[in-house]
Each structure stands twice: as C-alpha cells, then as structure tokens.
C-alpha cells in the first residue's frame, strides 16, 4: 500500500502521544489507588517501613531525573535552532543521567535484597502485613517505573542516532518531541513516587 503517506501531520502525532501518556498515567493511577488504600489501612507500618529507605539516595535520584528532564527539553529547543552538536550533547547527557538513575536504583534494590527484603521473602513476612504491602508496592511501582526508564532510554538512543545521521532535523523534530514527552512522563511519575515512598515518614 503506497498511498498512505500523502502528508505528515505533526499535530496528530503529538495528540496521539498525549493520549498514550494518558493511558500511562492511568496505569500508574491504578497503583496509586492501591498505595492510597493500603497506606490508609496500615498508617503506622507504612510510616516505619518508609524509614528503611534512604532519603539521600531518593533525593539524588529525584534531582538526576529532574535534570535529565531539563536536558531533553533543552534538546527540543536546540534542534529547532539547528544546533545539531548541542542537540546530541544534550541527548547524551539525558542518557547518561538515565544510566546514573538506574545504577543508583540497582544498588538500592541490591541492598534491600541483601537484607532479605524482596517480594515474598521470609524476612518480609515476619515483619508483618503493613511492611509486606509497603515493600511489595515499593518494588512493584519502582520496578514498573524502572521499566519505563529503560524504554525511554532505548527511545532516546534511537533519536540520538537519527539526529546524528541527519534523518531527524529541525524540519521533523516530532520524534524528539514525543520522546521528550515520554521522558517527562517518567519524571512526572517519579515526582509522586519519591515523597510517597521516601519522605512520608
């Protein structure tokens, strides 16, 4: 079928991306409902369990993600100003920050696993219901979030590659814009995950 590429509609692509972001928001909303209900039912246990998580690691990761969001947003400006080098630099910075985030996450999870805290572990079961739910939610939600980071990482890598070989330029920045939107979504969710798991102690 050769005919369907009659015109390109960037507004349509953007709207489509936003609709997809809505579904992602609702996906996490389901988990936030679960979090809300169990926090309401187990206030003390959630309070104490949250103290097990390192606020420093959480804060550092939050700042890393915020900066990475800013760098990719700046990349959307750079490409429009036809500054290819800066665009690539900013995208690489975003990728690097995403990698840093995942590294931190890895060590955070690893530490928990070494303390015998992981879904279904016996240590966790001994801690009681509230703690089980808190840590199950913690692993489920940050895990799903990390999965989104990986998807975003792949997406931004593709964008980076295409900017480099000039197939993505100031004339058709929509893929970069949409990857940016996706990356901000990842940031947006973390903005809520951070206080819910690390701060409310």
């Amino acid at each position: 079928m050769s005919t369907m590429h009659l015109h390109r509609d960037d507004e349509a692509s953007k709207l489509g991306m936003w609709l997809f972001i809505f579904t992602e928001l609702l996906l996490f909303a389901g988990l936030f409902i679960v979090y809300g209900v169990y926090r309401y039912l187990n206030p003390v246990a959630f309070h104490l369990a949250a103290e097990e998580l390192s606020v420093t690691v959480g804060t550092v990761n939050t700042i890393i993600l915020l900066v990475s969001s800013a760098t990719i947003a700046m990349a959307t400006t750079a490409i429009r100003l036809k500054n290819k080098q800066l665009t690539i630099l900013l995208l690489l910075a975003t990728l690097f920050l995403a990698f840093m985030f995942m590294t931190n996450k890895y060590f955070e999870w690893k530490g928990k696993f070494e303390h015998g805290i992981f879904p279904g572990s016996e240590d966790l079961l001994r801690l009681g219901h509230g703690d089980t739910l808190f840590f199950s939610l913690y692993f489920f939600m940050t895990g799903l979030h990390a999965l989104h980071i990986i998807v975003g990482f792949v997406l931004i890598s593709i964008v980076c590659y295409r900017v480099n070989n000039n197939s993505l330029t100031a004339n058709n920045p929509v893929l970069l814009d949409n990857s940016g939107l996706y990356w901000h979504l990842v940031d947006l969710i973390w903005i809520f995950l951070f206080p819910l798991f690390y701060l409310i102690t």
């Binding site: 507004e11 700046m74 429009r80 100031a170």
Partner: peptide, 26 residues
C-alpha cells in the same frame, strides 16, 4: 500542514529556571 515545528522555540533560560525551581522544591 506542519506549522507546529516552527512556532514557540522555548529559550534555554526558561528551562533552566524551571529546573532550578524544581530542585529547590525537592
């Protein structure tokens, strides 16, 4: 068809200001 790509080039400065605000709030 494609007016989107050339309107509103957001200055870098604005992004940096917003980022600063976000970090302060964190």
């Amino acid at each position: 068809m494609n007016k989107h790509s050339d309107n509103h080039i957001v200055p870098y400065r604005l992004y940096i200001q917003v980022l600063a605000g976000l970090i302060v709030m964190t």
